[in-house]
Amino acid sequence: MLERWKQSAKQWVTGKMNLPEDVLLDVPRLTMIGQLHLHVENHRGVLHFSKELVRLKLSYGELSIKGKDFVIKTILPNELLLEGTIDEVRYLNGRETGGAHE
């Protein structure tokens, strides 16, 4: 109840004060350069990594990236640079799957 109220308050503040959403809200910021690179900020860890699929844990839900020949170029606590041929980026909300323990 309090969580949800806090979240809506944050949303209201960012909307009113014209702030970039990723500053206050705990949402990821994705920068994509063509199909070659994907730069993800504010992730919460790697759930799955293979050449064709990468799943990243986020504060709310998870991010699924599909493509070919994935290489994690750099990985830092909040940042991740993925290289390869990116076909699809998709948010998966709801219950976590994949059986990951953080």
Binding site: G45, K73, T74
Partner: peptide, 21 residues
């Protein structure tokens, strides 16, 4: 489950580069 190792490394500040499967 090698992803767990990567996550733990992130948490402990061990820098990993060029990860390939």
């Amino acid at each position: 489950y090698t992803e767990a190792v990567v996550n733990q490394c992130l948490r402990e500040g061990v820098i990993i580069k060029n990860i390939t499967r």
